[in-house]
Structure formats: C-alpha cells, structure tokens
Design a protein around this nucleic acid. Structure first.
Lengths: 227, 227
DNA sequence: CTCCTCTAATCGTCGGATGATTAGAGCCTA
DNA sequence: TAGGCTCTAATCATCCGACGATTAGAGGAG
C-alpha cells in the first residue's frame, strides 16, 4: 500500500470515526503530513485525489475542508468516467438511465410541487419556437431537454436518482445521443413525449408518467448500437 | 484551473482523441511532465487521481498504463463514496439498488445460463447449514448473500447494472443493513426470498423473478430509517 | 535452450525553496 | 462609531533535485 493510499485511507477513516465532519477544516499540510507519517508531497497527492472525488475541497491561502458529502456532490465525478466510455457501452449505460428515470417519473407524479410543474411548463413552452426556426438550434434544444428531465428527477424525492441520472445524461452524452438520431424529426418526437409526461405529472398520475417516460427513453435507446 | 487539473484533462483528452487506448503505456513521468508543461510533482498528482478513478494503473519500476476502461472497473471507485454516506442517505441509495436489481432479475430470467443456475443453486444449498448452527455465522451468510445477488446481476446482460449493484451493496453496506434487522429471523426470510427468486429464474419467468426480487429488497428497505 | 545475475529504466518518496492567494488584524477616514 | 483600506502572516500551489524501491530485459553460465 503506497503512502498516498495510506493518506486517503487515513482521512477517510477520520471521517468515518467522526473526527472530521462535513464543513470541518483539515489540519494544515505540514501537521497532517507529520501526523500520518508521510512527506508533504505524498500527503498532497492523497488530498488531491480526495478533492477530485468530491470528498474534500481545497482553497489556496485558506485551507482544506470536508465537503457536505451530499450524494449529488459525491456522484458527480462519475460523469467523468461515463464520458470515457466508448460507443459499445452507450446502450447499457442508457438502459440504467431509462430504468431510473422511469421510476423517477412515477415518483415525481406523486410528489411534484406546483412550482415544479410551473417551472417545467415554462421550459416546454419555449421549445416550439426553437423547433420552428431553421436551422434548429440543437444546443438550446439540448438545454431545454436537460432542464426538463432535471426537474422531473429532482422531484422524485430521491437525491441519489437525481444525481445519477444527471451524470448518466450529461451534456456530452446527450450530444452523442442526438447525433445518432438526427434524421427524422427526432426532436419533435421528443418534445411530444415531454408534453405527454408533463400532462401525466400535472394529473398526478404515476402510471401514465411511468409509461410515457419509459417510451420516451426507449425511443432514444433504440437508436443506439446493440450492446 | 490548477496544474493538476490540466494534467487530468490532458490525459483524458489524449484518451478521447485516440492517442491513448486501453492497455497503452503512458510516456515516462519526466517526458509527460514536459509535454504538458508541468513539474513532475504536479504530473504525479494528476496521474494519481486518474489511478484512483480506475482510468490508469501504475506499477513501480514498470510504467503507467491505461486500464481496460470497463464499466466495472470505472464504477468501482464509487463504492468508496457510498461508504461515506451517513445513515440518512442509506434509504435513497438502497432504493436505487432495489430498482436496478429488480430489473436485473427480470432480465436474468430471460438470459441466465444453465451454469449460472447451477452456480447459484450451489450457493443457496450451502445456506441452510449456516442458519442451522448456533450462533449463526453472519459473515458467511453475507458472503452467500453477496454471491447470489452477484450471479443474478451478472446474468442481466448489462455490465453497468452489475457494477452499480455491486458498489451499492458492498460488504460494508450489507453489514449495516443486516445489523438493522437482526431481530426476527431476517436471515431465514431472506433465504426464503432467494429460493423464490431462484425458482423463477429456473423457470425462465421474468415476471415472477421481478416480483420476488422487488419484495425481497423492499423488505430490507423497510428496516431502514425514512429518508 | 533454460536459468540466473546484473544493469538500466522507471516509479515512489522525501526535503527544501519560492510564488500565489486568502483571512484577519490593525489603521485610517468620514 | 462604522466603514473601508493596507499590510502581514498563514496556507496552499508549484517547482526542483536527490535517493530508494521495483521491475524488465540484456547478457552470461550451465
């Protein structure tokens, strides 16, 4: 086990033992390095790794702090590895997204607030104008697409689902998806699906929300190579 | 953007551009540091971070190589952050596990091989002896539990689901779960659930497999604090 | 041809030095 | 006194050079 691994493990253990809580400040590098019995260089490698994993946050001139450890923050780095996946893995990843978002839609139908409905309504209302112009502004369509799905996932009541779907359907992933199906009015079809989902949410009907979301994401998925 | 971030981004970009493929060896530290315009220390911090994310693998005396980039390898580090979650997040995480494994069971019923059935049969056959002795060897029960669920997920045909459920239901997580419900024959109940799931798999019946898996995991979930 | 030894290459770790950034004390001014 | 400014100390960011640990591969012995 390398020194750096010992640092990572040591800090992780301090958090698990309650010696460090979210928001707490870590000892300064020289102190912590001595406490863990490693040089400052090795310590920095370990702290940097934890920083990239979203467990701690370092500010030059100030210090290093334990983050909130929220699922949203800790799952975000996963988006990094999702982007590295080749086309062969696009389908299994999207299947996971579909399974989770389908359930999220059903939950959201039971829990969404009037504010959430209004906000998603505003997003959808802006889309027809986008699709009417030629050429269509695909970037802005993707923005609206992301915004709608994000609102639905956020109202599922499960922050882990919200964080996972966010990373599984990031902007770069969506750009790949849209590129693969930019032939026959795919965006119009997607927008119609969104409207159907919205109506189910507005009616607080989980079954309809589930079915429409499942069909919507399945349509996208069927444009992907088999995997 | 720090030097280390530039290193991470630079190597990531090399992979995305095809300059580095799985199995390829990275340039030696001194060369790569010069190519990226950073010192060897900063380079090492970046490479170490990528190593912890499972993207590269370094061997002292040999060199640094790009890993296979398989979903299983890249999602494994997520288990690290799952363990850091407090009890308040246990329920949403387990909900995700339940949703994914339920679907995995249905898929596995359609795809599982005779070897997979035989292997899971062997695992289940060993459990009654474990439960008969007093006191029950909880560690070995957890082992069997993990083995059974792993086989099912592996035969879902989706490596991402297999990897995610593995990290969401690691040994440490399971120990927490079992501790919360060690009152009233929970292990016997779990084993009976497993048998019901196995029969559905053996009959290649996805509906029954789905239902039994859902009920099995829901039972576990109901012992968790509301979140 | 096989095995062993030895060397060179490479990563792992350390210590020190310097620059960049921040927070906070102390001072000044209105 | 309240507010803003300056300056200082603390802290992290980066770099450099050195040496130890490990591995792969060349070369020789049998």
């Amino acid at each position: 086990m390398s020194r750096t691994d010992e640092v990572v493990d040591g800090i992780k253990r301090m958090i698990l033992a309650g010696e460090l809580s979210p928001g707490d400040r870590l000892p300064v590098e020289n102190e912590l390095a001595e406490a863990l019995g490693v040089s400052r260089g090795s310590l920095r490698e370990g702290v940097r790794a934890l920083s990239i994993l979203g467990i701690v946050h370092t500010r030059q001139g100030d210090g290093t702090y334990v983050t909130s450890l929220d699922p949203g923050r800790l799952l975000a780095p996963m988006g990094f590895v999702v982007e590295l996946q080749g086309d062969s893995s696009a389908r299994p990843f999207h299947q996971v997204r579909r399974i989770l978002e389908t359930e999220a839609a059903a939950q959201a139908a039971l829990r969404i607030t009037d504010e959430g409905l209004a906000e998603s309504r505003t997003v959808l209302d802006g889309v027809p104008a986008l699709l009417a112009q030629a050429p269509v502004d695909h970037d802005r369509f993707i923005e609206a697409d992301i915004a709608f799905h994000r609102i639905v996932a956020a109202h599922s009541g499960n922050p882990v689902i919200a964080a996972l779907t966010e990373t599984l359907a990031s902007r770069t992933v969506r750009e790949r998806l849209l590129r693969g199906q930019r032939q026959s009015g795919a965006e119009e079809r997607a927008h119609a699906d969104h409207e159907a989902i919205w109506r189910a949410l507005a009616d607080r009907d989980p079954d309809r929300a589930r079915t429409h979301m499942a069909a919507h994401l399945l349509t996208v998925e069927e444009s992907l190579p088999t995997g």
